[in-house]
Design a protein around this nucleic acid. Structure first.
Ligand SMILES: NC(=O)c1ccc[n+]([C@@H]2O[C@H](COP(=O)([O-])OP(=O)(O)OC[C@H]3O[C@@H](n4cnc5c(N)ncnc54)[C@H](O)[C@@H]3O)[C@@H](O)[C@H]2O)c1
Ligand SMILES: NC(=O)c1ccc[n+]([C@@H]2O[C@H](COP(=O)([O-])OP(=O)(O)OC[C@H]3O[C@@H](n4cnc5c(N)ncnc54)[C@H](O)[C@@H]3O)[C@@H](O)[C@H]2O)c1
Lengths: 206, 206
DNA sequence: CTAACACTGTTATTTTTTTCACACTGATAA
DNA sequence: TTATCAGTGTGAAAAAAATAACAGTGTTAG
């Protein structure tokens, strides 16, 4: 199969979540225009994306949800799933853990790390919190491949280095400090100020 | 000036934050390759973006930081600034407020809304929290133009309707429920699961 | 004075992403 | 039976975004 565009990968994740909730509502099929309107995109975009992963629909009923979920999962999941750690159990870290817990079976948050002893050796929403000094060890024994950084700006660089040293595969960074990691580690960063300033910019134009 | 691409708008916001921290470190000038490496992009991309907003650098010293900040602000800020409300003072809402407070002068969070009476009529990090029933009134009296949605999924649609009704200009939605708003309201949505699944996908390829 | 250097600014090109346009198809209704 | 309808699948075109290529230019070293 040809290389799938990055934007398509992002949408596949959204399609899957959209159809999961459709399925939960008892539906078995969905049309491209329905999926499109859930994501605020065009039906052609949907059909093209699904074409790229080789998913075909039926003419009269659209796409079969069960099949679609399987096909998307085939692409974006790994067989055994991946194990995730959150570093920094503050507001943001907690929000992520409560949000993700019980959502997806293939990505599981299995550990949190902090330096605050009030948080260490407790569970938050079922996830154990360890001292940051144990990061290297736990990453390895727990077979964690993805780290989510939610520590204060000043600590972010150091935490990233520890993650890289421990052999992490991917980092999702929410600290405002942009990180440098070797090319063998996939890095994704998000900062809400960018989003907010974008909203502000386009709001003022209206 | 020609229309500025959406991606450039996003990067302008990032450039400004990057140079602000450079400035805080006592620097007065920055080269395109330095800015580029801070954002993990190419120097050409930086020069092109700055060209689009009509900012020019000097040959030997690169871009003057003070000027650059002014020029970017000229584009993405409004004169009087914009006032922002957070709806849902949970983990996420709190994280945003503490993060934004004192960061930018032109976008100010001036109100939070919740239904939980433990939170209402108190301040969080200097921001007063009101009952959601007062939303319409406060949006108008406080002249709020942007709303950040951080309420549970089930409440998101209703909250969005209230914001639209109150005449909001832009919405930044963090609830996983994708919203429908009239075209007069600018909508931006972010969901960390998309980011995380993307990281997972590209991590497994490495 | 001249050449080498290390930047910026911009045109041209390439790549990526989205949209258009339309063939195809099975169901339905007249 | 035949026309219409409402969907999918996809090559082609367009639009958006990123990259390459390079001219221009103060600065510095010789
Ligand atoms: N990207 C975004 O959109 C966004 C939004 C809000 C906040 N932020 C940033 O995210 C970070 C966290 O925000 P928050 O509201 O959760 O802050 P917080 O203060 O509530 O939480 C930070 C946590 O990190 C822990 N910590 C500090 N140093 C550590 C270390 N070396 N190792 C492990 N843990 C450590 C602290 O004990 C604390 O529990 C901040 O840097 C904030 O600026 C980013
Ligand atoms: N987009 C993302 O990346 C992301 C990440 C984490 C969580 N989330 C989502 O964000 C939302 C908030 O997460 P959280 O961890 O802060 O949850 P939370 O439960 O800590 O906070 C939700 C807050 O909203 C308040 N609330 C409920 N109904 C309300 C209403 N009608 N009007 C005003 N306030 C109301 C609650 O009292 C509570 O204080 C959830 O839907 C969660 O799934 C999104």
């Amino acid at each position: 199969m040809a290389k799938i565009p990055e934007k398509t990968i992002e949408r596949l994740s959204k399609y899957r979540r959209a159809v999961l909730s459709y399925q939960a509502a008892g539906k078995h099929h969905i049309f491209s225009h329905q999926l499109a309107s859930l994501l605020h995109i065009t039906p052609v975009q949907v059909r093209r994306d699904l074409m790229l992963i080789g998913h075909t629909g039926t003419l009269r009923r659209g796409y079969e949800i069960k099949d679609l979920i399987d096909n998307i999962s085939e692409i974006i999941d790994t067989d055994k799933g991946q194990r995730v750690a959150v570093i920094g159990l503050g507001n943001l870290g907690k929000a992520f853990i409560s949000y993700l817990n019980g959502k997806r079976s293939k990505l599981t948050i299995v550990a949190a790390f902090d330096i605050n002893f009030d948080k260490i050796e407790r569970n938050f929403a079922g996830v154990p919190c360890y001292h940051i000094d144990n990061l290297n060890e736990i990453i390895k024994t727990e077979n964690i491949t993805i780290g989510i950084i939610a520590v204060p700006t000043e600590q972010a660089t150091e935490v990233a280095e520890k993650l890289v040293f421990a052999g992490i595969k991917g980092i999702l960074n929410y600290s405002p400090k942009s990180l440098n990691v070797p090319p063998s580690v996939f890095l994704e960063e998000y900062d809400m100020i960018t989003s907010l300033e974008k909203v502000a910019y386009y709001s003022k134009l209206q």
